[in-house]
Design a protein around this nucleic acid. Sequence first.
DNA 1: TCATTTGTTCGGATTCAACTCGGATATGCG
DNA 2: CGCATATCCGAGTTGAATCCGAACAAATGA
Lengths: 210, 210
Amino acid sequence: MRTSSRQRRPTQKRAKATVNAIVEAGFISLSRHGLEGTTTRHIAEIAGVGVGSLYEYFANKEEVFDAMHQHVVREVVALVQPRIPELVRLDIRELVAELLYRYRDLLERDDGRYLRYMSYAAYFAPRNQLEPITQLLMNLLVQYVMHHPQLTRLGNLPAMGFIMINGGIFTVIRYLTDPNPAVDFDDLVRGLGDMVAHFVDGELGKSVNS
Amino acid sequence: MRTSSRQRRPTQKRAKATVNAIVEAGFISLSRHGLEGTTTRHIAEIAGVGVGSLYEYFANKEEVFDAMHQHVVREVVALVQPRIPELVRLDIRELVAELLYRYRDLLERDDGRYLRYMSYAAYFAPRNQLEPITQLLMNLLVQYVMHHPQLTRLGNLPAMGFIMINGGIFTVIRYLTDPNPAVDFDDLVRGLGDMVAHFVDGELGKSVNS
DNA sequence: TCATTTGTTCGGATTCAACTCGGATATGCG
DNA sequence: CGCATATCCGAGTTGAATCCGAACAAATGA
């Protein structure tokens, strides 16, 4: 793989449209034909371009998936980033609920296009490109703590952040992917909210008592 | 794919050894060459058999992965199942810690052979054969609650179980896969233990007060 | 405007891995 | 031993990923 040379940046408007169409087609093909069924010919055909055009801008099929990945990551960041000032003012349960519902909505948009991608994502992206999202949420966490000074007494923030962020991201994906979930999404959200809220209360109470 | 017919069950000792060698080789190839680099020729070569032999027992490469999957699942079940009677007697934090450390040890065994597999396969949403593990842990949870009667007052067990089980499984995989983790595993275990313990205390306290 | 250069598209040709086939070899049983 | 059945094999087929070079479109500049 990794053909290195002969790579092209789209400079003209037409070319950018082609690149967009290809990424878009990637999501569509993944939804329509699954992972195995997603061939470069399919993608090109759905995008309405020749296979050769695909290889003008992407060194290989993998890079198309990378581009899709970045697209999803950008969407998630765009979802949360601008709302941070508002989010840090929420009650902790409300914060959890708000993040989870928005996240779900995003994953279910366009017939679950992004969800479908995410459930395969680890397959293509061994190198952790989930980082920007983790960073963003860790950032949100820090800012949240700063806006609620009593929380600064909480112990090991990095570890708790890691747990809550990863636990949250994957639990939701698992849940939405489950064809026959045992509980409904509201229960899940409430449960995660309770978990976090009780943890905070418990930790703060502990500090006071000791 | 899915050639259906012409499938064979290994009946003789020699054939069983071949099948084992192939599954074993699957893990080795995955560790050594990654997912893309794992070809049927590689697997066959490592196993010391011809490609044709592989197709005597597996309809396609996918089925080799399925067999690997079942192997991992069986290992996890074997790890927990026989110890349930003992586990239910532990303090909640100890239980969490015990499960997590054993789970980590298993994933890291043989140079992370199983971890490598899980980091590719865990997300493999379509055929969710993670079920047996979820079932097992849910079972453990139920038995744990029965041995600690005060816990029966806890609300929504299914939802909490879903969160803790999936959160736990994926958080650990994510952690072990992270080339440069910000915290150490002990912090992670302590954090998850605190989370669960405070949740329980919080829920029980709430009931008492209301 | 037109010539030239640079960007873009295309789909047939090539490569390589999954999978097949039919024969060779081993086992086990009477 | 000799037949039947199980197992093994690797050259050959198929199809998807990728390459390539020619055709077409846009920009440039005189």
